[in-house]
């Protein structure tokens, strides 16, 4: 059996080393990883996927540690992907989310993996989604994805998770204001963590008001829950709301969302594939260099060049330009 075959077999058996190596492959070599993912694909779709996002300092990791504890008490197996940013200057990353969850790392039914953003939001989205698939295929009943709520990554989590939990904390001040704009529309559940702090109630009211303004009278109105994860308070309630949201999805348009997600992913895959093959061919034949020369010499422009090229190659597709 070849190497990829071994990985697939290992992942399906729940072998932790195979899971780890497959995720590395996803990170380092997407085209090779695609082959493995396509073999795992039919085994995915069973796990419940929870996204947890929020600003630094809101206590996401501690909250996840508590959720894992409760899920384990219920006998569920759990996989966690914790995403942290890479430095844009050095490409290095400091991945410190595990530290809160180390107690669970030796539990055979828990798998924790840290991933760095590697400065590529599109690539990250794909890598995270595929890593979750690996956990799913390996038999984890719940997969949790933790991202820092800033910039691009929070939007991605919407596409990956069934339920997105946005974690905020009182006293983070301006951060919340700044982040709100991007974060408010993606939350299915809002958590005010560190609720034993002053101003927790003010934060709740603040978030409720914002939800009331943006909530388009859909059937699911995001609840706002207070937790004090460090003391284990409110996590049971949070888990209940996550289950409620899952039930809601199952009754209302779970299929619709799933179809939409598949459509998006398929479109992305087609885009990737066509771009790769066309650019690849142009490079091989030297046409690309030639075109660049023409554009530089102002004999044509990038748009017209693309039109001409695609007309030739995408015969049979009715493209509107």
């Amino acid at each position: 059996m070849n190497h990829n075959g071994q990985l697939v077999e290992g992942v399906l058996k729940g072998d932790r080393r195979s899971i780890a190596r497959t995720i590395t492959l996803i990170e380092n070599n997407p085209s090779e990883a695609r082959k493995v993912i396509s073999k795992l694909y039919s085994h995915t779709g069973k796990a419940q996927i929870i996204g947890i996002t929020g600003p630094t300092g809101s206590g996401k990791s501690t909250l996840i540690e508590r959720l894992v504890k409760e899920l384990r008490r219920k006998g569920k197996s759990v996989g966690i992907i914790a995403v942290d940013p890479s430095s844009p200057f050095t490409g290095g990353a400091f991945l410190g989310d595990r530290i809160r969850m180390q107690k669970h790392s030796i539990d055979g039914k828990v798998f924790i993996r840290s991933m760095a953003t590697r400065n590529s939001s599109g690539g990250l989205a794909r890598a995270t989604r595929d890593a979750v698939r690996v956990l799913d295929a390996s038999g984890k009943e719940v997969a949790i994805v933790e991202t820092v709520g800033a910039g691009q990554s929070e939007v991605d989590i919407r596409k990956i998770a069934h339920t997105v939990v946005v974690v905020l904390a009182p006293g983070l001040g301006d951060d919340i204001q700044a982040i709100k704009a991007g974060i408010m529309e993606i939350g299915d559940i809002f958590v005010v963590n560190k609720a034993d702090r002053e101003n927790a109630d003010a934060s709740v009211i603040d978030i409720e008001t914002t939800i009331n303004m943006s909530w388009e009278k859909k059937k699911w109105r995001p609840p706002v829950i207070k937790t004090t994860a460090a003391k284990g308070e409110g996590t049971t309630e949070l888990l209940n709301h996550i289950s409620l949201h899952m039930k809601y999805l199952e009754n209302e348009g779970f299929d619709k969302q799933r179809r939409q997600d598949v459509e998006t992913e398929l479109a992305e895959a087609i885009k990737q594939k066509t771009t790769d093959s066309i650019i690849g061919e142009l490079k091989r034949t030297g046409e690309l260099e030639e075109l660049i020369g023409k554009i530089l010499a102002k004999k044509t422009d990038p748009y017209s060049a693309a039109d001409t090229l695609l007309k030739e190659r995408l015969k049979g597709f009715k493209t509107r330009t």
Partner: peptide
């Protein structure tokens, strides 16, 4: 330029080995 997985204090040998495995 490396990706550093920091585990914090008081790690048992089992925790360290398991972390190395899961994080590849």
């Amino acid at each position: 330029g490396m990706e550093v997985i920091y585990t914090g204090l008081w790690q048992t040998p089992e925790q360290i080995a398991e972390t190395a495995l899961q994080e590849d």
